[in-house]
């Protein structure tokens, strides 16, 4: 128990833990929509655009978040506009818009070398350097994004699943997409100093894909992904303290580890279910759970054992 309490004596760890908890759960929620809307690459791209904005903002003596926010939102709007008529696909639009903005930031850094060091935090994350202002920004973005996603649950789900039908049912899908892009941009900017531009995509995606392995229900996937994101953030922070490793990278690796575990569990579960449910009835081998086949109570394979090693003739 002491290993859990000891790091909490340090203010930098308490700040980092709180930031990781909020960013983890925030990315968990928004990541579900990101992967289901096929926007994984958007998250990656917007973080790069926001980085370019942060550099431009810094050069113009703006606040870090103001520059990153303005450029991130501009990128989201541009991508929406360019892809609207369907002639240019979103991956191409993201490739040109966000990389150009990132390149702008890199050029400015190369010209004004004096502040190169300051942007390492944005690139690779510096959760242990989280300030009170950072916590406030992360808290506000988490609260407002969670609230918006809660009240937009129905139109967001419908337009994510079936955009055409959603329009027929009266959903203004263009506005829903725009609001979602803005919420995603804000979430990415809030997460930048925690995990870094280079690793935000994994923080967004890992909890959601892990949750997808655990359920076939959308509402449950949202809940599981949020919990998974929060656990990843907190556990990653503790692990980074214990292992004395970079916090952002540890959080990302822990998320990837959870995903691998969920894949393994799913694989074993499917193998096990197949062995349990495979039945032989004469020459016919097929699957159904015990007690649910042919109206026979406690239906068992005739030879008393399963036939998982033999090919199924009927496998629904």
């Amino acid at each position: 128990m002491e290993f859990l309490l000891e790091p909490l004596e340090y203010e930098f760890f308490r700040h980092g833990l709180l930031a990781a908890l909020m960013v983890g759960s925030l990315c968990g929620v928004i990541g579900v929509y990101v992967i289901l809307r096929g926007m994984s690459y958007v998250g990656h791209g917007l973080s790069h655009a926001a980085f370019g904005g942060a550099v431009v903002g810094f050069t113009l003596n703006f606040n870090f978040y103001a520059g990153a926010g303005a450029m991130g939102l501009l990128a989201a709007l541009l991508i929406n506009r360019i892809t609207r008529n369907g002639k240019i696909k979103s991956d191409a639009a993201i490739g040109i818009v966000t990389t150009a903005m990132f390149a702008l930031g890199v050029i400015i850094i190369s010209r004004v070398r004096t502040f190169t060091q300051s942007f390492e935090a944005a690139l690779f994350g510096n959760i242990l350097g989280i300030t009170g202002e950072d916590l406030l920004v992360i808290g506000l973005v988490t609260a407002s994004t969670m609230t918006a996603m809660f009240f937009m649950y129905r139109p967001l789900l419908f337009s994510t699943f079936d955009n055409e039908a959603a329009r027929v049912f009266g959903i203004r899908t263009g506005i829903v997409q725009l609001i979602f892009s803005m919420l995603l941009t804000l979430s990415i900017i809030a997460s930048m100093n925690v995990v870094g531009v280079t690793m935000i995509a994994a923080t967004l995606i890992a909890p959601a894909v892990t949750a997808r392995m655990m359920t076939d229900s959308f509402s449950r996937m949202l809940i599981y992904s949020t919990i998974m994101g929060a656990i990843t953030g907190v556990a990653g922070m503790y692990l980074s303290y214990i292992l004395n490793a970079a916090s952002g990278a540890t959080i990302v690796l822990f998320g990837a580890l959870l995903f691998c575990l969920s894949l393994l569990i799913k694989f074993i579960r499917e193998k096990f279910m197949l062995r349990v449910n495979l039945h032989r009835h004469g020459d016919l081998i097929h699957t159904h759970p015990h007690g649910q086949g042919h109206g026979v109570p406690n239906d068992r394979p005739e030879n008393g054992k399963t036939n998982a090693d033999q090919p199924a003739q009927e496998n629904r």
């Binding site: 289901l36 129905r154 419908f158 699943f161 049912f169 229900s217 959308f218 509402s219 996937m221």
Partner: peptide, 23 residues
């Protein structure tokens, strides 16, 4: 492959109720 149950698919049609609660 989208994670929705049959009930969740039917519930999408109820968007027109303008009910703000997800459930």
């Amino acid at each position: 492959s989208f994670p929705v149950t049959v009930e969740e698919v039917i519930m999408m049609g109820l968007y027109t109720n303008r009910r703000i609660w997800p459930w």
